[in-house]
């Protein structure tokens, strides 16, 4: 029996310096849990999670990458297949924020041209240790015209929202393409667009 349980499959990639919380973000999103023990990711791991956006079942296949510097070259070879990239820094770690520019350059060099990007300032629960203000995060996002959000994998802030928004942006792109090929679809999509922001329906 066929096993297709979804309408669309989106491949997403999590990148950013080691220790910023990529693995925790993914774990929070897929298993709704958090552990504070740090096990450095040595390789590329993925989890899947199905969300419903605008009545479509979208299977997200999310790839978590090793952030260690020695793996940078090798991880860039995974950028190509990604339709969306989450670029994560740690608001308590200045260096991880400064490196965002480097990661962005990496994306430009190795990812698909039309990849959807989003910057996440993680660990926003740690207010007393904050060194990167939200404004600086927003500024860099505006500068590169990328979506931005502060998140906390620990306190479950904005995690679902971030993934759903990224997925929605990809969906916009894909359905736009579909609509161009098939004008009938446009009507349906436009009607659905008028609904409340889709992340609300998928992220309770």
């Amino acid at each position: 029996m066929a096993k297709k349980t979804y309408d669309l499959l989106f491949k997403l990639l999590l990148i950013g310096d080691s220790g910023v919380g990529k693995t925790c973000i993914l774990f929070r999103f897929s298993d709704d849990a958090f552990t504070s023990t740090f096990i450095s990711t040595i390789g590329i791991d993925f989890k899947i999670k199905t969300v419903e956006l605008r009545g479509k079942k979208i299977k997200l296949q999310i790839w978590d990458t090793a952030g260690q510097e020695r793996f940078h070259t090798i991880t860039t070879s995974y950028y190509r297949g990604a339709m969306g990239i989450m670029l994560v820094y740690d608001i308590t770690n200045e260096k991880s924020f400064e490196n965002i520019v480097k990661w962005l350059r990496n994306i430009d060099e190795h990812a698909n041209e039309d990849v959807e990007k989003m910057i996440l300032g993680n660990k926003c629960d740690m207010t007393d240790k904050r060194v990167v203000s939200k404004e600086r995060g927003e500024a860099i996002a505006v500068e590169h015209s990328i979506r931005f959000m502060e998140t906390s994998a620990k306190s479950n802030i904005n995690i679902e929202r971030a993934f759903c928004e990224l997925a929605e942006a990809i969906l916009d792109k894909t359905s736009g393409r579909e609509a161009a090929e098939n004008p009938d679809r446009l009507v349906v999509d436009r009607r659905n667009n008028e609904k409340a922001p889709a992340y609300k329906s998928c992220c309770s």
């Binding site: 040595i42 390789g43 590329i44 791991d45 993925f46 090793a66 793996f71 090798i74």
Partner: peptide, 10 residues
């Protein structure tokens, strides 16, 4: 080190 239908390890 790639696992078929699974993760990659470095």
């Amino acid at each position: 080190l790639h696992v078929k239908n699974g993760p990659d390890m470095f």
